[in-house]
Design a protein around this nucleic acid. Structure first.
Length: 595
DNA sequence: GGAAACACTTAGCAGCCTAGGG
DNA sequence: CCCTAGGCTGCTAAGTGTTTCC
């Protein structure tokens, strides 16, 4: 009954405006006779009292290709209808990308492209491999090059225009404050590029019209003007949500939103709440750990599965792993969705007992590959969970993320699987900083220590990247530098020996000065060599690791800011401008802050 | 109680921009 | 002063978790 009452209150707070009938009523849920926490709860969900904005910016309409640029089919140039031509350009633009070589991409694209063709076009164009998009590709490459080669003033002008657009559409008024919007431009049409082995890659992502977009704004706000000759799908005033506009994307039928920038007060508050939850977990994590260890030997299989999964989530910072619809997305997993094929058990490996090997594709199809020694009950449980199962079966077949989260919720209000990732990331940073920073070190060494601590977290969270394109080249340059220095050092070494001999025979002050000079030169070179090889090491360690993701989403900024203050490192050395804007709420943290 | 819908956070990468070396 | 490597930002995909529906 409570739940039902809550639902009604929740909906009442989100009033549909329909055709702009506006009563000067409060936006807050109406007072109901059911008193106490229910009302509290519904007030909790109110995110704002005032919201005003210009609506999204729509990208310019399609501009037809000039006459000289054509698609060639089976050796013959073809002039396409506007709709078909537009979709063809989306493919032509991408010709240099690896995607277009993939069969799934090609098939999906061709399928969707044909839907845009006229009857005659469909009759003519039957095979993608007979289509030649090179003229289109060249056209867009030339255009890009031309833009790049524009004189300075012209570029400046374009920049000014972009800025103007940002000023006009890029901000909203939220509760009296002018706040930045993160994505005020509508996504242009394009070919869907999923990550990894995505079954829908190459499908057409349609152009979104104002008629597809729902606007959310304050009841008393001026309703944003749709582009001339158009209308919004709907205008509503729901102050229990944070989005300004929404639409449904055509490939996955997923809902997309226009939302506030992380620098906004509202987003900042939520970020802070997230870290506060992680800090509260710090208080109970000991108990939770004892509990799940005890549960490893429970007679209840469900409990044992939950306890082992939670152990992975805690120890390895795995994601929860919701079940996904098969065939709709790339095949990736998290903890609760691990399958037998992702886990290997070795009773004995490299002198260690009870070794578990995990190998799977996680979020964004990033590979997770880890092997570690676990306690005997974990090992034996896994053996049991996997017994008589096929490779494609779930290891934790009696567990779902929602049952796991329900269990966690009982431990602590607001506790879910992802809080463990935040907690473990932040606590690791704090501990590593403590271990690696020395007050008397140079600023450069302190920053290096910070980056090392940051890297420990990135490795824990498996924040990987493809090696940068320029990686090999820049590493080679660095190695070349080292070789040059080494050669130089060898030369100086020879000089030094000579000088030594010279000084031995002559023994005067001049020859002595000369000897000293050579010796100093050698010292300096050796120091530089040490620096350079440290750089190489740093670079190699960072080859596949991204520090930015954990910094932005998992590390309580108050830890970093307190560290900066304590060791006299300017905050700008750790956070870029945008990052400082995101973490405004934490900038005044005292140096003795403890996570 | 499970699926679908919804809301919001977390994610890697392309390409632009800019600082610092030659 | 120019050029280029690497840092930064914008983009949008892909997760998590809650609410609603059946």
């Amino acid at each position: 009954m409570h739940a039902a009452a809550l639902l009604r209150l929740g909906r009442a707070a989100g009033v549909r405006l329909g055709d702009v009938s506006r009563r000067p009523a409060s936006v807050v849920a109406p007072k109901s006779s059911t008193a106490g926490w229910e009302e509290e709860k519904s007030k909790d969900r109110v995110r704002w009292r005032q919201l005003e904005h210009r609506g999204p910016y729509f990208v310019p309409a399609y501009e037809p290709l000039p006459d000289g640029v054509r698609i060639v089919y089976d050796g013959k140039p073809v002039k396409l209808s506007l709709a078909a031509e537009e979709v063809a350009t989306l493919y032509g633009k991408m010709l240099h990308q690896e995607y277009t070589t993939k069969e799934v991409f090609q098939n999906n694209f061709f399928n969707d492209w044909r839907k845009e063709m006229t009857e005659e076009e469909r009759e003519l164009i039957k095979h993608l491999d007979k289509c030649d998009f090179t003229e289109i590709h060249r056209h867009f490459m030339d255009k890009a090059a031309a833009r790049k080669a524009l004189p300075r003033e012209e570029k400046q002008k374009l920049k000014e225009e972009a800025k103007k657009l940002q000023q006009e559409f890029g901000y909203c008024i939220l509760d009296g404050q002018r706040e930045k919007i993160s994505n005020f431009k509508m996504e242009p049409p394009g070919l869907f590029c999923g990550r990894g082995n995505h079954p829908k890659m190459g499908m057409l992502k349609r152009r979104i019209r104002p008629e597809d977009v729902t606007i959310n704004c304050g009841r008393d706000a001026k309703i944003p003007e749709p582009p001339a000759g158009h209308q919004w799908k709907e205008v509503r005033s729901d102050n229990t949500v944070m989005w300004l506009a929404t639409w449904t994307e055509s490939v996955q039928n997923s809902v997309k939103y226009i939302t506030l920038n992380p620098s906004s007060k509202l987003k900042g508050q939520r970020d802070q709440q997230k870290y506060e939850a992680a800090r509260r977990l710090k208080g109970v994590v000991g108990e939770i750990r004892s509990q799940y260890r005890a549960d490893w030997t429970s007679p209840d299989v469900k409990k044992r599965q939950r306890a082992v999964a939670l152990y992975f989530i805690d120890k390895l910072a795995l994601r929860a792993g919701n079940r996904k619809e098969e065939g709709e997305t790339a095949d990736t997993v998290g903890c609760c969705s691990l399958r037998v094929e992702h886990v290997q058990l070795h009773a004995q490996a490299n002198g260690c007992k009870y070794v578990v090997e995990l190998d799977f594709l996680g979020k964004d199809s990033i590979s997770y590959s880890n092997r570690m020694s676990v306690e005997k009950p974990v090992f034996e449980n896994l053996q049991l969970f996997m017994k008589n199962k096929s490779p494609g079966d779930h290891v934790f077949d009696k567990l779902t993320t929602s049952s796991l989260n329900k269990h966690l919720q009982a431990w602590m209000d607001g506790l879910t699987a992802k809080v463990f990732r935040t907690y473990n990331a932040s606590i690791t940073l704090q501990k590593q900083l403590q271990a690696l920073t020395h007050a008397n070190d140079s600023q450069a060494s302190k920053i290096l220590a910070y980056n090392r601590a940051n890297r420990a977290v990135a490795v824990l969270c498996n924040h990987q990247r493809a090696a940068p394109r320029t990686f090999m080249k820049s590493l080679q340059t660095l190695h070349a530098k080292i070789e040059a220095k080494k050669a130089q050092a060898a030369e100086v070494q020879v000089e030094l020996v000579k000088a030594k001999a010279n000084h031995l025979t002559r023994g005067d002050s001049k020859s002595r000065r000369l000897l000293q000079k050579q010796w100093q030169r050698l010292q300096k070179l050796e120091e530089q060599l040490i620096q350079l090889s440290a750089q190489v090491k740093d670079k190699e360690e960072n080859k596949h690791v991204v520090l930015g993701t954990s910094k932005l989403s998992y590390l309580d900024p108050r830890i970093s800011i307190a560290w900066c203050k304590k060791f006299g490192v300017p905050v700008e050395k750790v956070y870029t401008k945008t990052q400082r804007e995101k973490f405004t709420w934490a900038l005044d943290t005292a140096e003795d802050f403890e996570f």
